Measured scan of single mutants.
Amino acid sequence: SYYEILDVPRSASADDIKKAYRRKALQWHPDKNPDNKEFAEKKFKEVAEAYEVLSDKHKREIYDR
């Protein structure tokens, strides 16, 4: 789930989600993982997609249904 990707509970606040996104984006940024760039790019995209949905109140409500 998007919550698992960002490592936050379903009850996470918008601020918690933003902090988790920043932490995970740094962790999986391809430039930070030169030895495993392809895998890092995949993870980085997953993190971005999760944040896009969970950071938008309307999209998150739909996702949580």
Rank of each mutant, 00 (worst) to 15 (best):
A50F: 00
L54T: 02
D64E: 04
N36K: 10
R23C: 13
L54F: 01
A40H: 05
F39H: 10
E38M: 09
L26G: 10
E52K: 08
D31V: 05
Y2T: 01
H58D: 13
Y3R: 00
E61A: 12
F44P: 01
A50Y: 00
N36W: 08
E61C: 11
D56Y: 02
I17D: 00
D7M: 07
V53N: 05
Y3E: 01
D56I: 04
K42F: 10
A12F: 02
R22F: 13
S13N: 12
K59W: 06
D35S: 12
K43W: 06
P30K: 05
E49T: 08
V47N: 02
K37Q: 12
H29W: 08
V47C: 10
D35C: 11
N33Y: 14
Y2I: 03
E52R: 10
K37S: 08
K19D: 15
L26P: 03
N36Y: 05
P30M: 04
Y3G: 00
K18S: 11
N33K: 04
E38Q: 11
R23G: 07
I5N: 03
D35K: 09
D56M: 03
P9F: 04
H29R: 08
D31A: 10
P34H: 12
K37F: 05
A25Q: 13
R23S: 14
Y3C: 01
K57D: 12
R65Y: 07
H29S: 14
K37T: 11
A25G: 05
A48I: 15
E41A: 12
R65D: 06
D35E: 13
K57M: 11
D31P: 03
A14I: 14
D16W: 05
K59Y: 06
K18W: 13
A50G: 02
W28G: 02
E49M: 10
L6K: 00
A20R: 01
K43E: 04
D31K: 09
F44K: 04
D64K: 01
F44A: 07
V53Q: 05
L54P: 00
P30L: 04
K32T: 11
P30G: 05
A25C: 14
E49P: 00
P9A: 09
H29G: 10
K57A: 15
K43I: 10
L54H: 00
V47A: 10
E4R: 07
K45I: 08
L26S: 13
A12V: 04
D64A: 01
K32I: 10
E61L: 10
S1M: 09
A25N: 06
V47H: 01
R23F: 11
Y21C: 06
E49F: 06
D7T: 03
K18V: 12
D7Y: 03
Y21M: 05
R60G: 03
D35A: 13
Y2W: 11
E41K: 11
I5E: 04
K37V: 12
V8H: 00
H58C: 13
S11D: 15
Y2L: 12
K32M: 15
E41G: 07
E38C: 08
R10T: 12
F44S: 10
A12W: 00
S13V: 04
Y2F: 11
Y21E: 02
L26Q: 15
I62T: 08
V53P: 01
Y63W: 03
R22D: 15
Y63M: 03
A40S: 10
D35Q: 12
S11I: 07
A14K: 08
Y51M: 04
K45V: 07
F39I: 10
A50K: 00
A48G: 09
K19A: 15
A50C: 01
H29A: 11
A12H: 01
E4A: 10
W28L: 05
F44C: 07
E61R: 06
K19P: 02
Q27N: 04
R23I: 15
Y3D: 00
D16H: 07
H58Q: 14
K43V: 09
A48V: 15
Y21L: 04
W28F: 12
K24E: 05
S1D: 15
E41Q: 11
K42V: 10
R60L: 02
K32N: 15
S1R: 11
W28E: 02
E4F: 07
H29E: 09
F39D: 09
I17N: 00
H29K: 07
A12R: 00
A14T: 13
P30N: 05
D15L: 09
K24M: 13
A14N: 12
R22W: 15
K32F: 14
F44T: 06
A12D: 01
E49R: 07
E49A: 08
R10Q: 11
A25D: 03
P9S: 11
R65T: 11
E61Y: 10
A40Q: 05
Y51Q: 01
A20E: 02
I5M: 07
Q27L: 12
Y2R: 01
A25P: 00
I5C: 06
A25L: 15
F39T: 08
K45E: 09
S55N: 09
E41F: 08
K45Y: 08
H29C: 10
E46K: 06
Y21N: 02
W28Q: 02
Y2E: 01
S13A: 06
L6I: 03
R23L: 14
D15H: 12
L6F: 02
D15T: 10
D56G: 03
K32L: 15
E52A: 12
E46N: 04
K18T: 14
A25I: 14
V47Q: 02
L26H: 10
N33A: 04
P30F: 04
K59A: 11
L6T: 00
D35I: 08
E46P: 02
A48L: 15
Q27Y: 11
K32S: 15
P34T: 09
E38Y: 07
K37Y: 12
Y63Q: 03
V47D: 00
L6G: 00
I5Y: 05
D56R: 03
E38D: 10
Y21I: 03
R10D: 06
V53E: 03
E46I: 06
P34S: 12
A50L: 00
F39M: 12
K18A: 13
N33R: 04
E46Q: 12
V8G: 01
P34L: 14
K32V: 13
D15I: 10
A48F: 14
R60I: 02
K19N: 15
H29P: 02
R65V: 09
R65H: 10
A20W: 00
Y2H: 06
E52D: 12
E46A: 08
D7R: 04
I17Y: 01
R60H: 03
E46G: 04
K59I: 04
H58T: 15
R60E: 03
K43M: 15
A40K: 03
D16K: 06
Y63E: 03
R65L: 11
D56F: 02
K43T: 06
R22Y: 15
Y3N: 01
K24P: 00
N36Q: 11
K24D: 02
N33L: 05
V53S: 03
R23W: 07
N36M: 11
D15R: 10
P30E: 06
K59S: 08
K57T: 14
A20S: 05
D7K: 04
E52N: 11
D7S: 10
K24G: 06
